[in-house]
């Protein structure tokens, strides 16, 4: 089954075209990297996928639910980690997750069970009672991913989740999400402008100036050149 399907998507900010005829799909359980330089349209695509914006051009489907026609069903299957942190710094890790669970209508024992499982999954149980403010960047990101897993989504959207993290934390988070796809069958769409976050067997979509320039596995797209060189040649962007 297709976890995420983007068909002929277009979007403009006034006269400025942000996305032009973007199409790709991601199989269930796959890790798909959405690679593009700054201003490629990645965040706009994420805003459309999370229904912060809507468009009349094209179609977005999450686990078979059309976002325009069945937004609530589609949103219920999505977990999101935004580029900008959305943690309440004055709440503990656990209370952040509890608040999020409630926004999905989850409370009581069921919510607690899911919160514990999500914390365990991201190795954050020991820090559950610490204030979000006291966590380092890597642990804040892990908390956000754990939070995005509480309602057991089928599709995880991560918009440049490693921004501001050191190399070790970046590698750990990237590995965690790959692991989630492999072990839990989660579909992940990972937006980034860093080629070292893309693994050779990952599905890869290269976005530039609102258009899809390449779509396939990272290994195929990289070819003999290597992914960084290939990406630079395609986009002319510094990596």
């Amino acid at each position: 089954m297709t976890g995420l399907k983007v068909e002929r998507l277009g979007f403009s900010y006034g006269a400025k075209r942000a996305l032009e005829n973007v199409s790709f799909d991601v199989e269930q359980g796959a890790f798909c990297a959405l690679l593009g330089p700054n201003g490629a349209g990645k965040s706009t695509l994420f805003a459309l996928l999370t229904r912060l914006f809507t468009t009349r051009e094209g179609r977005l489907t999450v686990m078979g639910h059309d976002i325009a026609r069945a937004p609530r069903q589609a949103l219920a299957r999505i977990g999101v980690v935004f580029q900008q942190s959305t943690l309440d710094l004055d709440l503990s890790v656990r209370r952040n997750l509890r608040y999020f669970a409630a926004l999905h209508g989850l409370a009581g024992r069921e919510a607690e069970t899911r919160i514990e499982a999500a914390l365990e999954r991201m190795a954050m149980r020991e820090r559950a009672d610490e204030l979000a403010r006291d966590l380092n960047g890597g642990h804040r990101r892990r908390t956000e991913i754990a939070r995005a897993l509480v309602h057991r989504p089928a599709v995880l959207l991560l918009d440049e989740p490693t921004v501001g993290l050191d190399a070790e934390a970046r590698r750990a988070i990237t590995a965690h999400v790959h692991d989630l796809c492999a072990s839990d069958g989660l579909t992940a769409l990972w937006a980034t402008h860093l080629t070292d976050e893309v693994w050779p067997d990952d599905r890869l979509v290269i976005l530039h100036n609102g258009r899809v320039l390449a779509d396939g596995t990272a290994r195929e797209i990289a070819g003999q050149e290597g992914l960084t060189e290939r990406f630079l040649n395609l986009t002319g962007a510094p990596v």
């Binding site: 229904r51 912060l52 937004p71 609530r72 999101v80 935004f82 959305t86 999905h104």
Partner: peptide
């Protein structure tokens, strides 16, 4: 501005209720 409004607006519950 801080981004936390996004958390509210991407909930599957009806936006008017939120």
């Amino acid at each position: 501005e801080m981004g936390s409004m996004r958390l509210l607006l991407t909930s599957p519950l009806p936006r008017w209720w939120l």
